[in-house]
Amino acid sequence: MNPVMKFLHKTGSPAYFYWLSGRMIPWLWVIFAVLTTWGMYQAFFVAPTDYQQGESYRIIYIHVPAAWMSMMIYLMMAIFGAIGLIWRIRIAEILAISSAPIGAAFALIALISGAVWGKPTWGAYWVWDARLTSQLVLFFLYLGVMGLHSAIDEPRKAARAAALLALVGVVNLPIIHYSVEWWNTLHQGTTIKFTGGSKMPNSMLFPLLLMAASTKFYYGAALLTRARNRLLEQDRRRGWVAKSIREQRL
């Protein structure tokens, strides 16, 4: 067996996953706290004022990372769901459903922070353009995945049903991303591009990248914490839990 498959098999075992994630979580929180403090300081005290919007543009340091995360977490949820569907790995199923509330929270933060920014800049809290509507659909998809999962009592069946819905919803991700290019929207186009240069000076971009990195560590920490709780709840009568407690490997 090659090392990658070996790692995956080992991580797929509940006892090892529970132990490894417990070791990782504190570090993820520490890195998250450091990056967020640094990023927020840069965002509010170092980054220059925008020539047109003044100070209100600083909402992007919350809005944009939250919107990115809401999409990335959805993709992760669908990937974990697909792994659960195909290989029936229980840890993947648990990681998929544990992603949903975190992603939903980020989607909601993106929607609310966008509304707060939209009022002074556009003159409206909400408009039904393609970008805003597709992002709202993403939020509802998260709610749908969570609702479907909790409607089925048997956890393995619930995970499979939720994974199917998550997979179907993946089609919304390119729609959100390209909505500002495919249609005339009130929402502006993409500022930060990986190719062809961003339409933002580096002094403004740097805090944004810090926040984008910090939210990923938040996701990691929150995801593993949720997944551990769910795993322990499902397995509370299983042998490995008692064994791990006896050997103090938790």
């Binding site: 220059p48 919007q53 543009y57 408009v127 502006q188 339409k199 933002m200 000076p201 403004m204």
Partner: peptide
């Protein structure tokens, strides 16, 4: 009945714009 301003995707410090 309503007028909305469309913001563009360019961000810039005021000194740079000047």
């Amino acid at each position: 009945d309503e007028v909305l301003a469309k913001h563009d995707e360019e961000y810039m410090a005021p000194e740079v714009a000047d």
